[in-house]
Write a protein that binds this DNA or RNA. Structure first.
Length: 586
RNA sequence: GUACCUGUAGCUCAAUUGGAUAGAGCAUCAGACUACGAAUCUGAGGGUUGCAGGUUCGAUUCCUGCCAGGUACGCCA
């Protein structure tokens, strides 16, 4: 992996899979001059599935050989015949039906670990340099408390945010608040008739929710009330000063509460532009779509038909003259494209909005926008007894989840670290509890539904954030003891040597960090990184258990401390990308 | 009715996007602290990958049909 100039300065470093792929390409091109399978696909090298098959493997030859009616094993032998292996490879062999397996030199693994320690990005290439991504996530509705259903968009979106930045992308995170919908007519009526000012001072957002629910129920039972709600909405949208003042107050109260949660979760946005930010552009947008012949009237509404895309029609203006979210979303894309010139716009929402995104993406395409648009959707959060909803009253507030997590973590810290000062215990419990909640969500494939249980969300052992945090704390603890006992020692200057099996397995995991980061980002699945970190951590725990540090002979001791330090660095960096803190001691 | 998603060990989830003997955690059972943190480690049992076909050297992955669950289908977001 290390690539040095003659002066011993690091020029660049590449992951092993990249080195091996590049090595394979010209050889495959020579062996298969007329292959119908593209070289780029044939030459892909991936981590080996099983240690007995080496460290990395290439599976592409079998497909190509098949397409050309050649014997795959013989074809693979031909490729390897020259035997001028890359420096990092100990041996390469053909196995099974026509796999090529690569076994790396221990020295190469040791050197790679050393490079990761020195590289500011832990060996991860800056593949996003020069590219801009707008990331749209969280986006809660004003006047409703955030509940456990909101955690997914916020936590997944935030992890994607951090991952992209780490890869060198310019990221603009935008919290597209629901601050301009039909709900405000209902809330204003609720406010005028039911508000309890004392409650509004005590728990503002809960009170707003209460009056919303009450007014909503009344609107379903009473057509007069519903009509009044509509009138209030039209007044608001028409700029009525009283309603505007109320609306602004609702937003301010909600934002205060959202900000508290974002602060606890370590989430910050570059932009907070709610739907209302685009409200003056909606009429012009609809007119433009009509002029272009894209939109036309249907049943009193303005609609874009999407038969070519085999999609249902997209409604952009209601028959009562009001606009809906599709219109706002289209306007938002146009603004972002013009203002930020992004290469890509990524949205993180739940699965229910898939059709909506396909529809308004299609409309935007017809307007000539070529920016890549991605909808990252995730499965709904459910309770064991079924879905939850505000109206059923079975929601679990996000704040309560976070409080509970910190409490459980505190109990654990107090029992296992009684000597720790109370203030520190509290701080550690915060990091451990919130880390557990984040990890429980991020370690699962986003596209599956999550059934919420307290035990799962707050797990503190096994495959959980505290397991990873524990590994970090243990490394830090050994490092401090080393400094006590060997004040003159400098393990960071000592070379890393890879000898025993557990150390080799650990170094191999470290070399795969960049692959995990890139794949997690490109597939929009933070769980890929979470899986990697857990695997790395297991490799370390095993190493720790099987190999002495402080009682090892000089040299070996320093090498092991050094390898531990690299592991710590990658773990802290990786967990940081998931938004999980790693206290020195836990 | 149409479209999308999910179905893997008792439970919760993986499986490098078509690769080799389908892997982890929890739970169960058996071991390991007079060493550097046992929030840990070592090992065992546990599988017709919903069912039935198909495509090919090779399928949890792709195609078709069923079954079960979830979600969405013009004026909510």
């Amino acid at each position: 992996m290390p690539c040095r100039s003659g002066l011993g300065i690091i020029v660049f470093m590449r992951p092993f899979e990249q080195i091996l792929t590049d090595w394979l390409k010209p050889r495959l091109a020579a062996a298969f001059p007329d292959s119908p399978v593209p070289l780029a696909k044939m030459a892909v090298v991936v981590a080996a599935a099983n240690p007995e098959f080496g460290d990395y493997q290439c599976n592409g030859i079998m497909g190509a050989a098949k397409a050309m009616r050649r014997n795959p094993r013989e074809a693979a032998e031909t490729v390897l015949a020259g035997a001028d292996l890359p420096d990092c490879v100990e041996k390469a062999e053909v196995a099974g039906a026509g796999f090529i397996n690569f076994f790396l030199k221990n020295d190469a693994l040791a050197a790679a670990a050393g490079e990761i320690a020195r590289d500011p990005h832990c060996g991860v290439p800056q593949i996003g340099a020069g590219k801009t991504v707008v990331l749209d996530y969280s986006s809660p509705n004003v006047a409703k408390p955030m509940h456990i259903g909101h955690i997914r968009s916020t936590v997944i979106g935030n992890a994607l945010d951090r991952l992209h930045r780490f890869l060198g992308y310019r990221v603009l995170s935008d919290n597209h608040l629901g601050d301009w919908g039909t709900q405000f007519g209902i809330i204003i009526m609720g406010f005028r008739n039911f508000v309890d000012e004392a409650a509004l001072r005590e728990t503002p957002v809960e009170e707003l929710e209460r009056i919303y629910v009450k007014s909503y129920e009344q609107s379903k039972a009473d057509p007069e009330w519903l009509a009044a709600c509509r009138r209030e909405l039209v007044k608001l949208q028409g700029g009525d000063p009283d309603n505007l003042a109320l609306w602004k107050r609702f937003i301010a109260l909600s934002m205060d509460e959202f900000d508290k949660i974002y602060k606890r979760l370590g989430v910050r946005f570059d932009l907070v532009r709610g739907e209302s930010h685009y409200r003056d552009q909606l009429a012009g947008l609809v007119a433009r779509l009509a002029e272009l012949g894209l939109a036309r009237e249907s049943e009193g509404a303005q609609v874009v038909f999407l038969e070519e895309e085999k999609l249902l029609p997209c409604l952009i203006r209601k028959s009562d003259g009001g606009y809906n979210y599709a219109t706002t979303d289209i306007a938002t894309v146009l603004n972002r494209v013009e203002e930020f010139k992004p290469d890509r716009i990524v949205y993180v929402t739940d699965e229910r909005q898939q059709l909506h995104f396909k529809q308004f993406f299609a409309v935007v395409r017809r307007l000539g926008v070529t920016t890549e648009l991605v909808h990252v959707w995730f499965g709904l959060m459910r309770l064991p007894e079924g879905t939850f909803s505000t109206r059923q009253g079975n929601v679990i507030k996000l704040e309560r989840l976070l409080d509970e997590a910190e409490q459980r973590a505190l109990a654990l810290v107090q029992s296992s670290s009684p000597e720790m000062p109370a203030e520190t215990q509290k701080e550690v419990a915060r990091a451990v509890g919130l880390g557990a909640v984040r990890y429980a969500d991020l370690s699962q494939n986003p596209q599956t539904l999550i059934t919420f249980t307290w035990d799962k969300a707050l797990a503190l052992n096994g495959n959980s954030a505290p397991y990873l945090q524990y590994a970090c704390a243990r490394i830090a603890s050994v490092r401090d003891k080393y400094r006590d006992r060997f004040p003159a020692g400098d393990y960071e200057a000592a070379p890393i040597r890879v000898e025993e099996a557990a150390g080799r397995a650990l170094a191999l995991r470290l070399a795969r960090f960049s692959e995990a980061v890139i794949r997690a980002t490109e597939t929009y699945r933070p769980n890929v990184l979470a899986d990697y970190l857990y695997d790395l951590s297991q490799a370390y725990s095993s190493y720790y258990q099987n190999v002495p540090f402080l009682t090892a002979p000089e040299g070996v001791r320093e090498s092991r401390l050094h390898l531990s330090a690299v592991t710590e660095r990658v773990l802290r960096q990786g967990l940081g990308l998931l938004g999980i803190e790693t206290p020195e001691r836990i």
